[in-house]
Nucleic acid binder design. Structure first.
Lengths: 190, 190
DNA sequence: GTCTATAATTCGATAGAC
DNA sequence: GTCTATCGAATTATAGAC
């Protein structure tokens, strides 16, 4: 896949921002990495803020859209939850730096985008919670606090990006998804 | 427990830094929250950087020291792991904002402190991995990739702070520890 | 401990020539 | 698209009086 200059700019900038943090990454850092002067940054983005917004809301919308399709399907709650896990794992492996941005840098959004982001994220979690609650009610998941269960499922998936961005680690998406699903459903005990 | 001015300063500043991020929190923000002028900040800290260092390394040392005591005990691997989980849960409930700082803001350390921090953290993870590996070998934990298991155990504990800092949530440390342990060992499946 | 004043630097962003 | 030049604002930190 050939990358044009714009794709290269976004890719390198994303990596830099994830590595140093959004606030700590200056436009001069970005310009230096791409080997041009500061003013040229504005050939690609309108502002530093808009760069962050673009990634965060595109990703958010993709996840919310996918989740809605899962919910509107006729799968069982457990099957639906496995689709959710699969989506998280596969997206994280494909775009680990975007996920890192999603986790670390959303706080740098300015109002009203900040509130909009938090609301959408809460909506996503609420929907996953609905699925898990149904799974418990059906007796397919063990009896436990459904909100805590939701919290733990989301938590355990959230850091996978850091495994993917680690060097010298070979990733088999199929195997990772299997192990992630096994951990969430069976834990590490015997 | 009566708080003197220094304790109040550190507590309020910590909350502010966690809420806005280390880089995004200015000394003016801190001064304004404590109702005095910027220069007074330096009555309590030598620099913005030293504030971060203090919290991060004190916490790191406490966790490493405790883990060493666990390792040097005669408990079984599974029992040791439960002590590790207990420590994480209890510390997180007692000091959620410090844990948040630990997770979000370590990247703002400057060299050589940054490398020192990363090395210590990796040492901690390696030691937990040793415990889990022994548990699998003994047959007390199910057969699985021990490194991935370690990664997942650590990941699932890491976000607990966000549950504790949430408003309108009542926390029972004993119950949370039970549910956390159940999730890690049994998952959510039946 | 508190303040005012300010140094020294860095930041995001813009103007305008080529 | 690239550059030089620069603006205005914000930042950490210090000096020194009260």
């Amino acid at each position: 896949m050939k990358k044009n200059r714009k794709e290269l700019f976004f890719e390198e900038t994303l990596k830099l921002v994830v590595q140093k943090g959004f606030k700590a990454t200056t436009l001069r850092d970005i310009a230096h990495k791409l080997d041009f002067e500061v003013a040229n940054v504005y050939n690609y983005i309108d502002s530093k803020e808009s760069f962050l917004e673009g990634y965060l809301f595109n990703t958010m919308d993709e996840f919310c859209g996918y989740l809605n399709n899962i919910v509107d399907s006729s799968y069982t709650p457990v099957e639906k939850l496995k689709f959710v896990i699969s989506k998280h794992v596969q997206y994280t492996i494909a775009h680990p730096y975007i996920v890192a941005l999603f986790i670390y840098e959303w706080r740098n959004l300015k109002e009203p985008k900040l509130t909009e982001f938090k609301d959408k994220r809460q909506g996503y979690i609420d929907t996953v919670n609905t699925i898990i609650k149904a799974g418990i009610k059906d007796g397919d998941l063990r009896e436990m606090d459904d909100e805590f269960a939701t919290f733990m499922v989301m938590s355990s998936m959230r850091w996978l990006f850091s495994l993917v961005t680690k060097e010298n680690v070979t990733i088999n998406p199929i195997e990772i998804e299997k192990q992630m699903t096994d951990f969430i459903f069976k834990g590490i005990g015997k």
